[in-house]
Structures are given as structure tokens and as C-alpha cells.
Simulated assay, not measured.
Amino acid sequence: MRAAVCGSPIAHSLSPVLHRAAYAALGLHGWEYDLLEVDEERLPAVVASLDAGWAGLSLTMPLKQAVVPLVDEVSDFARAVGAVNTVVVTPRGTGAPGRAGVHLHAENTDVHGLLAALAEAGAHRVERGAVVGGGATARSALVALLRAGCPRPVVVVRSAQRAGELREVAARLGGEVEVRGWADLPSVLDADVVVSTVPAGASEAVAQVLGARPGAGPLLLDVVYAPWPTPLARDWGGPVVGGFEMLLHQAAAQVELMTRRAAPLAQMRAAGLAELRARAAASAAAGARPRPNG
């Protein structure tokens, strides 16, 4: 069986390490999990090529919404969130109609990953929650806070269009959201939990506003896991949860959907942390090497 993570850029992804560790621990010999560099233009061809030899796909940016019209079924939950990160491939049966005899079911495991990561940090229930950013992962973060009991999460976005989309997500789930502009970014420090969904490249700018403040700040969950720590995580004035924990738990949920077996979380965590340490050591060694003149 085959599975893969798709996105662009994708070379940095830790998903293959996590899924391969799960397959090894489960004794699923012959199962493969690969990296596929796929943008929105190439995605339809990749989805159309899926057959009974595939178990599923993991999806990252920029594909979490682009995949929706390409599958046979989207779960009610993923449709409400407005973001998909998992496609599960199942056989339709011999001679059944459909693409290559398979059924493609789309799901969202990001919300599960966020909730599990927060719970491990002691945030089982959130009274005041805030999200920084307005993309597909921000939608999942908003839903996670609503599910953790936050009555009215705050989301800080740059785009007015994103504001409307986030209000629609909250309404579909029977909740409310308070959307604020970027000028109100410091207001997230009033929350108990802050989820940053900004990419690594934007972390420095956010850190300049929110970081290096005296006293104990709110719990930060930064969804970035590489490079780590991000400038925001490094300068944060309170407890920090890294994106690896979210990635681990959403990947474990994907393993269970694709293999129909309980995910070996301990083995997946050990493999992922070992890979991150190896990457950090390689990066440090590369930085320490003398550079040639010119």
C-alpha cells in the first residue's frame, strides 16, 4: 500500500518519518509513505491517479481547500471547518463505478491534533483563546478553541476576506468568533491560550510585537515545528508548545484512518524527535563550517 504527503514546498515535512515509524511498529511490511511536491495546478492529476494500491494522502498548504471538489465525499466535520488535511482511499468493490474503483473520503485531523497538543500541556478547557493568522490552519485552530469550551475566540487577521470566512466557520459549528485587525495583535496577550498559525517567515514580525515581555504570559501553541524554535517561541514570555505535538497527533489520527489500527504514538513520537535532533545537529554543523572566500 502507498500513502504520501502532498504540498508545496514539501521537502521539510516530517510526516514520512512519523508514518513510516507507525508502519514499522504495526508490522505493515510493504507499506510506503512518500513526499510529493504538489501545487494546486498539479493536484487534480494526483488525485485522479489514486487507485486501490493507495491508502491515502496527507495534505498541507496550499491544498487544504483545493482538494474539496476533487473527492467523492467530505465529512460533515471537515466541511464545517472548511479545511481538509486527509484523504482516505477505500475500494468500491469489483466492477463498481467511480475513479479506478476507489472511493475518496476527505477528513480533517488538524483539529484533533491541536486539541491533543493543548490537552498534553494541561489546557483541557480554554476560557479565553486567541488565534493569530487567517489561513486553513487558523480555521482548525478556531474550531479547536470552540471545542475546548472557549465561548468566543479572538482571531487576528490581516485580510478582511479572511474575517468573513472565519465567521462563517464559527457559525456552521454553532459558535461565535471575534475577528480583529492586525493593529490589535497585542490584544491576544489577554488570552489564556494563543495559537499562532503564521508561517516561519512571518514569526519574527509577530515576535517583535508579542515577544520578550516580562512576567508569565499565556500558553502559546506555535504550529511551526521546523525550524525550531521560531523567533516567536524563543521570545515568548510564557509556556510554549511546539508544532511537533500538533503534527504528531494529527498524523496518529491519519494512521488510524488509513490503516484501521490504533496508532503507535510512542514509537511515532520517538522517531519524530530523533529526526528533529538530527536535523538540528546537521544544521548546526553546516553553520559552523568555514565558508570559502568569494
Rank of each mutant, 00 (worst) to 15 (best):
L26A: 12
E176L: 15
L247V: 09
S203I: 03
A22M: 03
R291H: 02
G287W: 12
H124M: 02
V241H: 09
A200F: 03
D51N: 12
T109P: 08
G129D: 01
V179P: 00
R2Y: 06
P214N: 11
L232F: 02
E73Q: 11
G175A: 13
P290W: 03
A119Y: 10
T60S: 10
N85A: 11
G27K: 06
G237Q: 10
V143N: 02
A183L: 08
V209I: 06
A191H: 09
R269N: 11
V84G: 01
G98P: 08
E73F: 07
A271D: 06
A200S: 12
V74S: 00
R260Q: 08
A253S: 11
H103R: 15
P44V: 00
G149K: 08
V71I: 15
L142T: 04
W182L: 14
V155L: 14
A25Q: 13
G95N: 10
A11T: 03
L35H: 01
A200C: 04
V143M: 10
C150T: 04
V38Q: 07
A253H: 13
T86N: 00
W54A: 13
A226N: 05
P214F: 12
L26V: 11
H112P: 02
H112D: 14
D72T: 00
G129N: 04
A52Q: 14
D190G: 15
E256M: 07
L273R: 15
G211M: 13
G95D: 05
T137R: 09
M246H: 08
A55D: 02
G129R: 12
E127P: 03
A253Q: 06
W182V: 01
G133R: 00
V89N: 10
R139Q: 10
A183M: 04
M1H: 14
G56T: 03
V223Y: 10
G201I: 10
A207P: 05
R180W: 01
R291F: 01
E37W: 08
P264K: 04
L276T: 14
G211I: 03
G201P: 03
C150F: 14
L43R: 03
E120R: 08
Y33R: 11
R128W: 07
R20G: 11
Q65D: 13
T230G: 13
S140E: 09
R139E: 12
R261F: 05
P151A: 00
A252C: 11
T90P: 02
V154H: 09
D72F: 00
L50D: 02
R167Y: 09
P69F: 01
G135E: 10
M258Q: 14
F77I: 08
V224H: 13
L145D: 02
E165N: 05
A21R: 06
R260N: 03
A121G: 14
D192V: 04
L14W: 05
R162I: 01
A183Y: 01
A233F: 08
